[in-house]
């Protein structure tokens, strides 16, 4: 078992607290099968892989992947970047990663965190590994995304309203729980490099089979497979991690 990074400095009043879905991502990415796949794909002679976590939250997943790069990618020279729409998460995640790497002898490259609506601020074709634990809970249709201020508030009611909104952004997925995930999926062919791989977490209500079938129909022979799952209830998986990629032309 690889250790889970500490997030004790993060305030879970307004940042998503690591939960079953976060741990499923950790377990999936460090599983023998995925480590083998990633090590083969990003073997040590290639230019170093850039890892992006979208909606980085507390930073627990990205810190884990960066800290254990040697196990997961077979190399310690990876670069890790996190984005989040939540200003508190962007700050906390940067700290989680710094703390996790503090005692590591060979540290991967930290690109820090930025505040961004999904991958809108990323250059085309630069990301080799994209990780997304989306807001996947089916809810009422989502309003348009808008920035939420992190300015100091004196009124406790205002603070509560703001924090509730930030937490809602971390779980409320709109229709089928897929509104935000669908926006991210649309960005994948642009943001991923040729050798790029995405790991997206889905819940059963997101209809993972439908999602995978639709990805396989994208132009350019995309593949989508379930590579991790948990929470079996009456024979169907509650949560799963879908890997999305193209075969690299040698």
């Amino acid at each position: 078992m690889l250790p889970t990074p500490s997030t004790s400095h993060a305030s879970f009043e307004n940042i998503y607290e690591p939960a079953e879905d976060s741990y499923l991502l950790l377990d999936t990415l460090s599983s023998d099968a995925e480590s083998l796949f990633l090590t083969k794909r990003f073997g040590s002679d290639e230019p170093l892989p850039v890892i992006l976590e979208v909606g980085v939250g507390s930073g627990v997943v990205l810190a884990f992947v960066a800290t254990n790069a040697q196990v997961i990618f077979g190399r310690s020279d990876v670069a890790a970047l996190g984005v989040d729409i939540n200003p508190f998460a962007a700050k906390a995640a940067a700290q989680t990663i710094d703390v996790a790497l503090r005692d590591l002898e060979v540290k991967p490259i930290t690109l820090g965190t930025v505040m961004s609506d999904l991958t809108s601020s990323l250059r085309s074709g630069q990301i080799d590994v994209l990780i997304f634990n989306p807001p996947y809970v089916p809810t009422e249709p989502l309003p348009a995304t808008s920035a939420i201020s992190d300015e100091t508030m004196s009124n406790s009611h205002e603070v509560f309203e703001r924090d509730s909104k930030l937490l809602e952004l971390s779980y409320a997925g709109g229709v089928d729980g897929m509104e935000t995930t669908n926006r991210l999926l649309e960005q994948l062919p642009d943001v991923l490099s040729e050798r790029g791989v995405a790991y997206v977490l889905l819940c059963a209500q997101n209809k993972p089979e439908v999602v995978k079938t639709s990805i396989r129909q994208w132009p350019g022979s995309w593949k989508a497979e379930t590579v991790g799952s948990s929470g079996k209830t009456a024979g169907w998986e509650k949560l799963c991690v879908v890997r999305i990629w193209r075969d690299v032309v040698p």
Binding site: I85, V114, M115, S116, D117, A147
Partner: peptide
């Protein structure tokens, strides 16, 4: 504080 903010006001999205 070392963090860039790429969130756009709604009229610019």
């Amino acid at each position: 504080e070392g963090i860039a903010n790429f969130l756009l006001p709604s009229h610019m999205v």
